[in-house]
Amino acid sequence: MSVLGRKAAAEFVGTAFLVMAVVGSGVMASRLLPDDAGLQLLQNSLATGAALVALIVALQPVSASFNPVVTLVERALGLIDTGTTAALVAAQVLGGLAGTVAANLMFGLDAVTVSTHVRTGPALWLGEVIATVGLLVVIFGTVRSGRADRVAFAVGGYITAAYWFTSSTSFANPAVTIARTVTDTFAGIAPSSAPAFILAQLLGGAAGYVLVRFLYPPLATPAVATADRKVLS
């Protein structure tokens, strides 16, 4: 298999397992504690954050973005080319959908159940912008400060926290957002709500790109440039 094929496969698998963690833990939490939304969210956030750490550690040597916004920012920074970007984004979206289907089936649900969970309004959209900006700063800041080996823990910790400090519970990922439209469970989002969430994430991605470029000027040394490419793509 080609290098690009392996990267796309890693993105597919990683995003699939990430979404399984999001959706599956949401179903489990709602069944174990049907009357306590706070504990449901706690269980959901801890499972997601822990899964992210494990998946990034495992797949980082191949490719471990699991997020189209991160991949698009990599492209904007010149770390990957357009063809690679398209392949990885497609793999992330398809992997996310596969993860939702798997989670639904694991819990005895129909493979696809269109979500009726409406999430809309300026406050939630702002939450998505802020969540995405923060995620990009955490990822690229950790890498560009020479601590690439800590990206998994930084991202896992950030997402766990962002579940709680953002109004939207920090989707911060278009592939995950699309995937969550086909599960009518705790983690779902109605298809009518998804476009605005994705737009907010893309706006957050643009703002995050500007902030990363400002805080961390263009790569100064070949070693750092190599670390960027190795960790993020």
Rank of each mutant, 00 (worst) to 15 (best):
A225T: 01
N67L: 10
Y216T: 01
L124W: 12
F153L: 15
V101K: 14
G96K: 12
A131E: 06
Y209V: 03
V118P: 00
K7M: 14
S193N: 06
R229S: 01
A87C: 12
L79I: 13
S65N: 12
V101D: 09
V210A: 15
V22I: 13
G121D: 09
V101I: 13
T100V: 08
S45R: 13
A162H: 07
D36T: 01
A21V: 06
S65Y: 02
S193M: 09
P218R: 09
D184Y: 00
A86H: 11
P191Q: 14
A37G: 00
A102Q: 05
L55R: 02
V176Y: 12
G204N: 10
T221H: 07
F153T: 14
I139D: 04
L211Q: 05
I130N: 09
T181Q: 13
S170T: 04
V224W: 02
A131G: 00
L109E: 10
G156T: 04
L79S: 02
L79W: 14
R31N: 04
T132H: 12
Y216N: 00
G96L: 07
P34W: 08
G49Q: 11
Q40F: 15
V182W: 14
G99L: 12
V118Y: 15
V62R: 14
A98W: 10
A9W: 09
V27P: 00
A103M: 07
P191H: 11
V155L: 14
L215D: 05
G156C: 04
A131K: 13
V13N: 08
L52N: 01
L88G: 01
A8K: 05
L39V: 08
A51P: 02
A162R: 08
G26K: 13
A16T: 09
T113W: 05
A87Y: 15
V224I: 15
